[in-house]
């Protein structure tokens, strides 16, 4: 179904608001895709283009929220749409973090901020570990070669290889290991 014709400016404003709202509400990828779908498909673009844009954004590295904004924005409204969507997506995280960072800086040395940070560390560690597990197993069965590669990376890191290099080399070995 073709969306009704609207002036580009109005389209951009709507894209801006949509992505602003999404980034104020959800933190997770899949939930936000659902929300954006409802806001955008039928009103600003066709379903087919939407699916294409989302699929496309999975190929490219980088933050999920930004990619979604860019590709869907571009698909719906060209370069202007992409920029409007991006600005909407950028505003909540940056402004809120700016406020938090300044507040943290103010209260850095109070005992309760210290307690807060020490308290959060174990929870964060568990969250990261669970995320690492998800990254590692990626929806598929774990292959022995992946485990081997992981062990090699661990060894490399313990010896003192810079992490960036380890990641890059792992990717390159992947080309050969996972042919």
């Amino acid at each position: 179904m073709t969306p009704p014709a609207t002036s580009p400016f109005r389209l951009w404003t709507r894209l801006f608001w949509t992505f602003l709202k999404v980034n104020l509400m959800t933190s997770s990828g899949p939930a936000s895709v659902g929300f954006i779908y409802r806001e955008v498909v039928g009103k600003m673009m066709e379903e087919e283009r939407f699916i294409e844009a989302v699929g496309f954004s999975n190929v490219v590295p980088g933050s999920e929220a930004l990619k979604l904004a860019m590709f869907i924005g571009y698909s719906a409204g060209g370069m202007g749409g992409a920029i409007a969507a991006l600005m909407g997506a950028i505003l909540p995280p940056t402004v809120s973090m700016l406020l938090v960072a300044l507040a943290v800086q103010q209260f850095q040395d109070t005992p309760w901020m210290r307690g807060f940070t020490r308290g959060i560390a174990p929870a964060l560690a568990i969250l990261i570990a669970m995320a690492a597990w998800k990254v590692f197993h990626n929806g598929r069965r774990i292959r022995k070669r992946a485990v081997l590669l992981a062990l090699l990376c661990l060894l490399a890191l313990l010896i003192g290889f810079p992490p960036g290099l380890v990641v890059l080399l792992a990717g390159i070995s992947g080309i050969w290991l996972f042919r």
């Binding site: 964060l124 560690a125 990261i128 690492a132 992981a150 990376c153 390159i172 992947g174 996972f178």
Partner: peptide
């Protein structure tokens, strides 16, 4: 394949941060 190779390395790095925190 490149991305599949990156994955174990990234997971290991994430775990090392988690380790430091714990």
């Amino acid at each position: 394949s490149f991305v599949e190779g990156l994955t174990p390395a990234v997971a290991v790095l994430m775990l090392s941060v988690a380790w430091k925190l714990l």
